[in-house]
């Protein structure tokens, strides 16, 4: 699914990713953990094509496509989805309208017919219901006045509707109440299939309890300094990063 080789990226003069190697096979869920400021969000942004970051080296293959060469919307059309750590507010942009435009753009790219407003609403309502979200979320402006948790839920709703094949969840579990956490996990688990993979950035074991990652990676100082199975997350939860960092140093 995803092959990252020696990926380096900077913002301004500041080098943030210093050579990331990461392989996410089809159907797998990988967790990424690491201290604040280590570059986790940056990795998500670079994979989804945010242009404030300059890729200074390395390559990313996504289902055989050279991801780094593509516009953000082309990556989205190809199935890459980033759930933002801090979802941005879009005043004046209606959530339903936004979702339909995005969904139809992706459908178009796939040669599928576009959904009209009625078809879309039916689909969207079904998803909001399944994710136990209030209906009026669709009527409101994208993320405007949403609580922290609601914003995260909205990201999950978008993921459910757009049905990506690679989901990058950047701390989607932060700020969620216990029920919502379960919903996020269910949302990801529902998408799980041999053609779906996920990179789950998190600071907590809780989400991983529900998701059970195939691999856990520790990102520090812009590099992956340690990888392991699900037990690595539990170990980190118990003893923090000090040990891993010392080992890597």
């Amino acid at each position: 699914m995803l092959e990252i080789r020696g990926l380096a990226a900077s913002i301004g003069d500041k080098l943030i990713l210093r050579g990331i190697d990461l392989n996410v096979p089809d159907g797998e869920v990988h967790a990424i953990m690491g201290p604040n400021g280590s570059g986790k969000s940056t990795l998500g942004y670079v994979l989804s094509g945010r242009d404030d970051f300059t890729v200074t080296g390395g390559s990313v293959l996504y289902n055989g496509l050279d991801l780094l060469d593509m516009a953000p919307e082309a990556r989205a059309a190809a199935g890459v989805f980033l759930a933002f750590q801090a979802p941005i507010e879009l005043p004046g942009v209606n959530n339903a309208n936004f979702l339909r435009t995005a969904l139809n753009a992706i459908r178009r790219a796939h040669g599928e017919s576009e959904l009209d407003a009625v078809q879309f609403l039916k689909l969207a309502r079904a998803e909001t219901k399944r994710l136990a979200m209030p209906d009026d979320m669709l009527k409101r402006n994208v993320n405007v006045g949403f609580s922290g948790g609601e914003k995260k839920r909205n990201e999950v709703l978008q993921m459910a509707l757009l049905r990506p094949s690679l989901a990058i969840l950047d701390e989607t579990d932060s700020g969620l109440d216990i029920d919502a956490l379960k919903i996020v996990a269910d949302g990801v688990n529902a998408l799980r299939s041999p053609t779906f993979s996920a990179l789950v950035i998190t600071h907590h074991q809780r989400l991983l309890d529900h998701l059970v990652p195939n691999r856990v990676h520790v990102l520090a100082g812009g590099r992956i300094i340690r990888s392991g199975g699900p037990e690595l997350a539990r170990e980190l939860e118990k003893s923090g990063y000090a040990g891993v960092l010392a080992e890597a140093a």
Binding site: S48, G49, R50, D51, A71, P72, E73, R75, A76, A77, F81, L82, F84, P87, I88, L90, F98, T101, A102, L103, A105, I106, A109, Q158, L162
Partner: peptide, 10 residues
Amino acid sequence: FYLRSRGVPE
């Protein structure tokens, strides 16, 4: 960027 990352063309 948010919009484009959701697939909406520029």
